[in-house]
């Protein structure tokens, strides 16, 4: 893992007065606005791009509040005679613990609570420390965290799909029926916004604060 962190001099496109395309990697002279190969907008690796990260982050956080307060699913047993229960995300986990299925409860808790919260914290932290001086090791850690956040973001949609499948499938008329709750929409929106927030983050910022060669620590 550490053999690629070589200590030799590295020239960045930014330092060479050029601009690298974030989508296809093609390099263009500074001042060009659009990559002539893939058509992406060319942006400098600077902190102004973080505004978009924070905007999507905040929007995702706001949507995350109703996603937890409102019910995710409504279960109706025996035509409502045995009562209908509404469960929020955390409520569903507590229910699973109540029935003794600790392993499933742990999985659901991890996927629906730990991962989203960790994602918010990670993106915020990456945006705060972006462009600050760092050692090569720290930069590698940050990039690893960014890649995990980027990879794991879409997997949070599992919850929304579970609600959809259960609601479509468990429709046994009088016996039991499951209906989706408004939190499903809020949760889906929150996941989409955090994905956009992570995508807006420019990982090149992680490396901006690094000395380009090991001896230029003047």
């Amino acid at each position: 893992m550490s053999e690629h962190s070589h200590g030799g001099p590295v020239l960045t496109a930014h330092r060479a007065g050029l601009m690298g395309c974030r989508r296809c990697g093609r390099v263009w002279p500074k001042g060009q606005r659009q990559c002539a190969r893939c058509g992406s907008r060319l942006v400098q690796p600077d902190r102004s791009g973080l505004q978009a990260v924070w905007a999507w982050w905040l929007a995702g956080l706001i949507a995350y509040i109703p996603a937890n307060l409102m019910p995710m699913m409504r279960t109706q047993a025996f035509g409502g005679l045995k009562g209908s229960s509404e469960s929020t995300i955390v409520g569903g986990v507590l229910e699973l613990i109540h029935y003794g299925s600790y392993d499933i409860a742990a999985v659901v808790f991890f996927a629906s609570v730990v991962v989203p919260v960790a994602k918010f914290i990670s993106i915020a932290w990456l945006a705060i420390v972006a462009g600050r001086p760092a050692t090569v090791e720290q930069a590698h850690t940050r990039l690893k965290i960014y890649e995990v956040v980027e990879f794991i973001g879409r997997w949070s949609m599992i919850d929304v799909f579970v609600v959809a499948i259960l609601s479509a499938l468990v429709q046994l008329g009088f016996v039991v029926s499951i209906h989706p709750g408004p939190a499903a929409a809020a949760f889906a929106i929150s996941v989409a916004f955090t994905m956009l927030s992570a995508q807006s983050f420019d990982p090149r910022l992680i490396w901006r604060g690094l000395p380009l060669r090991s001896r230029t620590e003047d």
Partner: peptide, 30 residues
Amino acid sequence: GKGLIACPRCDALHVEEDLKGGETASCVRC
């Protein structure tokens, strides 16, 4: 910038080379 590649993750410049099938080019920095 002709014939150069900038790493999309860390902006390090690399000289573009034609790779054979099965070869992998990794960024020297990240």
